[in-house]
Amino acid sequence: MPTAHLTPAHLQARTARAVTAATSAGRALGLDVAHPKVLHDVFSVVVHLAPSPVVVRVPVVLPPGLDAARQAARQARELAVVSWLDRQGLPVVRPSPRVPCEPVQRDGFSMTFWEFVDVDASREPDYVAEAALAADLHAVLRGYPGELPFLSPLSATLPTCLALLEENPGLLPPEDLERARGEWAILAPMLSAREGFSAMFPQVSVQPIHGDAPSYNILRTASGVRYADFEDVTLGPVEWDVSFLGPEGAAVYNAAAARAGVRPLDPAALRVIDAARMLQMVVCHALVPQLPMLAEGLAPALQNWRKTPFAGGGL
Rank of each mutant, 00 (worst) to 15 (best):
A299P: 01
Q88N: 02
V233W: 09
F150G: 04
T112G: 07
N168W: 11
F244M: 14
P145T: 02
W84H: 04
A76W: 07
D136W: 04
W305V: 00
M1S: 04
M200G: 11
A213C: 14
V42A: 09
P289V: 06
Q105S: 14
L164Y: 00
S205H: 12
V282G: 01
R14W: 00
G312C: 04
G65E: 06
L291C: 03
Q290I: 07
E239K: 01
R263T: 09
V42P: 00
A260H: 05
P173I: 12
A163L: 07
D232T: 10
P159V: 06
G211A: 13
D266S: 10
D120I: 09
V206H: 06
C101P: 03
F43Y: 07
P159D: 09
P247V: 12
N304C: 01
R98H: 14
S152H: 07
P97N: 10
R27D: 00
T3S: 10
D67R: 08
F116M: 13
S83R: 13
K307M: 01
T15K: 11
G146Y: 05
P264N: 12
S24K: 11
H40D: 06
A13S: 13
V117S: 05
H40K: 13
S44T: 08
E239N: 03
N254E: 10
Q207N: 05
A68I: 03
L29P: 05
M293R: 13
L294K: 01
C161D: 02
P97L: 09
P173D: 15
V61G: 05
P51Y: 13
I209Q: 01
Y144K: 00
Q207M: 13
V42G: 01
A132L: 06
